[in-house]
Design a protein around this nucleic acid. Structure first.
Lengths: 146, 146
DNA sequence: GTGCATTTCTTGACTCGTTCAGGAAAAGCA
DNA sequence: TGCTTTTCCTGAACGAGTCAAGAAATGCAC
């Protein structure tokens, strides 16, 4: 649970105006890591029943641009957001149910970042997605696999 | 340029029926690495002017399931396909123009795959996307960056 | 080669996450 | 408190991808 005053301070800290939709959305992202936009809309509406979906989309973009939240979108998924930023962690995604978990990067800050055979690109981030099956899907689908 | 007979053999090799749409699409993916679905439709229609977009979607799914092509989808992009499969290579994506290039993985087969803190997931693939700026966007956007 | 069961393709409609647009409301500074 | 700018709301629109049902083609058996 995050304090509202703290969230407001965070918003001001990056030069964003403090509005009720922004506080509600930022709080929702803190409380529901890896949630998709619709879940965030629902969560924000528990604080602020009349926020429009458009406001949530706008706020998520503003928060993302400001670096307060991170947008992730594994292949085949809708956009998801998390409040854990700036620590270069990665994700495991379940191929079956789509659930996501965090993985701390054991390779340090940025794996494979050795500007070798990079085709002249100037690289600033290495994003890693691990694909597999989550514990529950693993037990469910392994049996009966023809 | 790939031989048609060769493509047919490839299709039969994985147990897929040989049809004109399949040959045309497979050829298109070979000729246009990292192309999106619409580009593939256009390319396939140079061989087969009346293929429906639905057929291309179906064929791409069949080819992907059969392992003949690989589907990639960097965040914010539509689905893209490539015929280079089974060699665990990765991609650099330009944040500005979205262009994609291949990167051979220098870490070996599967980086960071050490079942540690994996939350019980059984991981089968580690996908890496490098984000940055391609050579042309790099020179264009670096100047005049306020 | 023919016939037939099965797969695949075509047509056309539709879903749904996301974005666009214009006016109303709120934030924050003087 | 008043004013300018940003943000939010309402409502419509976009577009990649999917669904559905019937027509056509594939490839095997004969």
């Amino acid at each position: 649970m995050v304090d509202t005053a703290q969230l407001e301070g965070t918003l001001r800290g990056v030069g964003l105006r403090v509005t009720r939709p922004r506080v509600a959305v930022l709080d929702a992202v803190h409380d529901h890591p890896h949630a998709d936009t619709d879940s965030i809309i629902q969560a924000a509406r528990r604080d602020l029943p009349d926020v429009s979906h458009q406001a949530v989309y706008d706020v998520l973009r503003a928060l993302t641009d400001a670096g307060l939240v991170r947008r992730i979108q594994p292949a085949g998924s809708v956009a998801r957001y998390e409040a854990r930023v700036g620590d270069n962690h990665h994700h495991v995604v379940c191929r079956s149910c789509g659930s996501i978990a965090d993985v701390d990067c054991a390779v340090g800050e940025a794996p494979c970042l050795h500007g070798d055979a990079d085709h002249g690109f100037s690289i600033d981030e290495a994003e890693i997605v691990f694909w597999g099956l989550c514990p529950s899907c693993s037990t469910t689908t392994n049996r009966g696999k023809s």
